[in-house]
Design a protein around this nucleic acid. Sequence first.
DNA 1: AGAGTTAGTAGACGCTTGTTTACTTGTCAA
DNA 2: TTGACAAGTAAACAAGCGTCTACTAACTCT
Lengths: 185, 185
Amino acid sequence: MRQVTRDREATSRRILEAAGDLFAAHGYDQVTMRMIAAEAGANVALVNRYFGTKAALFAEALATGSTIESVIAGDPAGLAGRLAHRLAVRLQSGATEPVTRMVDRAGTSPEIQAILRAHVEATVVKRIAAQLDGPHPEQRALLAATMILGTGSVRRLFGPGVIEAVDAEEVEARLRSMFEICLRP
Amino acid sequence: MRQVTRDREATSRRILEAAGDLFAAHGYDQVTMRMIAAEAGANVALVNRYFGTKAALFAEALATGSTIESVIAGDPAGLAGRLAHRLAVRLQSGATEPVTRMVDRAGTSPEIQAILRAHVEATVVKRIAAQLDGPHPEQRALLAATMILGTGSVRRLFGPGVIEAVDAEEVEARLRSMFEICLRP
DNA sequence: AGAGTTAGTAGACGCTTGTTTACTTGTCAA
DNA sequence: TTGACAAGTAAACAAGCGTCTACTAACTCT
């Protein structure tokens, strides 16, 4: 009696959105199928019916959400600056993209680990590496990923606005220099 | 009939060690009290008897294990180099300290988050900040923590030896430059 | 208008979790 | 040697989990 109109597409979309929001907010392990169903205003059985399993739903939510691609794409010369700006903003604001938060809150379930690895590799490491000249581009892209994921962990532990109090521009400048060093040939 | 001698101290020490190893290897959520008891060769009820709750046991294991203190302590001038070396080694070897792995594998349980935050703040951020001159030492220490925690995430996702194949010394040199930038006044 | 397809629901299944209770057994002082 | 205290054990508890099955009700098409 919850649904007034019966619309499979709309319902499964609401489920996917709810899953993305909740996984990003609380992490894979802390989110239950019942929470997702409730948030989407749908029945638990439908979630399994449409997405099969919890891990599959996570994978789909991960793939659906917006990624960091837009920041990486563009002029290779400004890549370090763009990444630094993005991270500085993320460290301060409470409003970060669900996808990046999903990565650093995903927990340690083995079946999720593989999904995450593939996602980070495809959307972050490989895309950054593609912009780099010189030997071992993936190695340097991995160092950049280290910083990106590190800000995620720091934010998770210390909350948003942890660096806000002090000079934000100086932090961004420092981050830019660090990215330049780890990205340059 | 498991125990030949009855020794409370020895048993609780074995439990604590087993908990530390397992938490570090698989993360808080993936480790069950029964796994810990089995690994320690003890009974499940004893774990609760001696440590109260799972979260309390985690906190105690976190506090017991060796920390990164030894790397931070020492000549402030060589701090960047020591941290870079430690991280480079961590990225390559399979043998990392339990405690640092515990931090990056700890998952997202709310009650664990506070414990972790306090631990990282006390043993990493404050200790690094204490070595720094100039304004906002904690801000720079936090950036260093970002890199430290980032290597943890990268290692979790991509496994040990991810950067091993290529030039390890170059990676360490790059990390050192990055640390120097984020730590300098 | 009626039959058939399908979205949606209620409820239970089996399993695992952290924790507790009631009991047994080894150890040591008197 | 015996009695008491503490270490250790087995089993169950209640709650929560992901998943599945059987059922109801709405929409569509002829």
